[in-house]
């Protein structure tokens, strides 16, 4: 199977013998349609952010940008009680911290599970797989809340950081990735040269699993950027994360549609920009990660 694969890779995405690899008109229409559907809600979000509240309720709804973006942004930032800027900053801090932690811890554990032999490793890895099925958000809600109350951490962002510092999916993914990305021979060769385990980790493993780490980082960052349930319970309205801040806007200023949409657009803008800038790498990494993991 490996041999076949190699040949396919070398012979390009398709061999001319089989016409089914040519995109027919149906394929093109499907893809164009999917593209429009994918882009439309985001487009609509930005359109609404440039309109007035009256226009927002028109039927049919406006489909072209208006000229009110500036005033909507001003109003959003002037709406102190949504703490939108605080929410953005908190989310960046939380997502970055958690991402760093998950990536580092997962890479370490992934290395051990993939390339080292130790007693109980199978059981430990199996237990991680099991824990992936535990709905921690729901099952942890009561005890974690009591824990944060007792620590006096409710309303503070470490309450949102701590429970997410590890993630079974990350370990599982890095184990799979490391298994396939690093040939055992390299590890053995380094051993023979007298390298310690940590040196092997630093010199052999880390350089090889970087693409996997990038994918894991992206997924973890997004997951934490989107965290909603737990922050909405443990944080207070004056120190929100970006998602709860939008929810607060939606609640307290639900009639100001265009301001709400301006906030929503602002909350997705950073990720969309990163995505457009590194799109090629992200798609490449996701696909590679998917095959290896």
């Amino acid at each position: 199977m490996t041999a076949i694969q190699t040949r396919r890779r070398s012979s390009g995405p398709a061999s001319s013998a089989n016409r089914i690899w040519d995109a027919g008109p149906l394929t093109k229409v499907t893809l164009a349609f999917a593209l429009v559907l994918s882009a439309f809600p985001i487009y609509y979000m930005f359109i609404m952010a440039t309109r007035t509240n009256d226009e927002a309720l028109d039927t049919p709804p406006p489909l072209l940008p208006g000229g009110h973006l500036g005033e909507n942004v001003e109003r959003l930032l002037a709406t102190e009680d949504a703490y939108f800027a605080t929410g953005l900053i908190n989310s960046i801090i939380i997502s970055t911290t958690v991402t760093l932690s998950v990536v580092i811890i997962s890479t370490l554990a992934g290395f051990a599970f993939a390339k080292l032999r130790f007693r109980g490793s199978k059981i430990l890895l199996g237990s991680i797989l099991l824990t992936m099925m535990v709905p921690l958000q729901q099952m942890g809600i009561v005890p974690l809340y009591e824990m944060m109350v007792n620590l006096g951490w409710t309303g503070q962002i470490q309450a949102v950081i701590l429970p997410f510092l590890v993630n079974g999916f990350g370990v599982f993914m890095m184990t799979q990735y490391t298994t396939q990305a690093v040939p055992d021979e390299l590890v053995e060769a380094a051993r023979v040269d007298g390298a310690s385990t940590m040196r092997i980790y630093a010199n052999v493993i880390l350089p090889a699993v970087r693409p996997g780490m990038a994918v894991l980082a992206l997924l973890t960052f997004m997951q934490n950027w989107n965290e909603f349930l737990w922050p909405s319970i443990v944080l207070n309205p004056d120190n929100p994360v970006v998602q709860t801040s939008i929810a607060a806007l939606n609640q307290a200023h639900g009639t100001d549609y265009v301001m709400l949409f301006t906030g929503t657009a602002a909350s997705v803008l950073p990720l969309v920009i990163v995505f457009v800038m590194f799109g090629r790498q992200i798609v490449g990494g996701l696909m590679e990660g998917a095959v290896k993991a």
Binding site: L31, A34, L35, S38, A39, P41, I42, Y44, M45, M48, M222, W225, N226, F228, V242, Q243, I246, A247, N250, Y257, L260, F261, T264, A265, S267, V268, L271, V272, V274, F275, V276, G279, R280, I282, V283, L286
Partner: peptide, 24 residues
Amino acid sequence: LFFRLGILLPLVTSVVAVAVVFTQ
């Protein structure tokens, strides 16, 4: 690449943002 990026775009929006837009 353009098509791949295009259909992946929704992933990088946020859950709450999606819900706000769709609810509207």
